[in-house]
């Protein structure tokens, strides 16, 4: 499953083996496979929505921007979201 920059909803799926929740500093990820935590100090750049038993990220306080896309690409490199860009 892939989310695209140009998609209408602009929601980015989180892989099934990753749990995520919002914290005051941003997002806290947990990898089910190796029990590692990742703290992402993103403040309100991304919100988490839960649907169909899994999590999705979507732009939070700010609209979509290159900075936000860079952040999402970094998260994708770490396997925390599924994102291939435009």
């Amino acid at each position: 499953m892939t989310a695209y920059v140009g998609s209408t909803e602009r929601e980015i799926p989180v892989p099934k083996n990753i749990r995520v929740r919002e914290e005051d500093f941003g997002l806290l990820f947990y990898n089910v496979d190796d029990q590692t935590l990742t703290f992402v100090h993103s403040k309100r750049l991304l919100d988490v929505v839960y649907r169909e038993g899994r999590a999705w990220l979507r732009p939070g306080a700010c609209p979509w921007s290159h900075g936000l896309e860079r952040l999402i690409r970094r998260l994708a490199e770490k396997g925390l979201v599924v994102f291939e860009g435009r």
Partner: peptide
């Protein structure tokens, strides 16, 4: 440090 909103484990 500010506590997390809930425990992790």
């Amino acid at each position: 440090l500010s506590p997390l909103r809930a425990p992790v484990t």
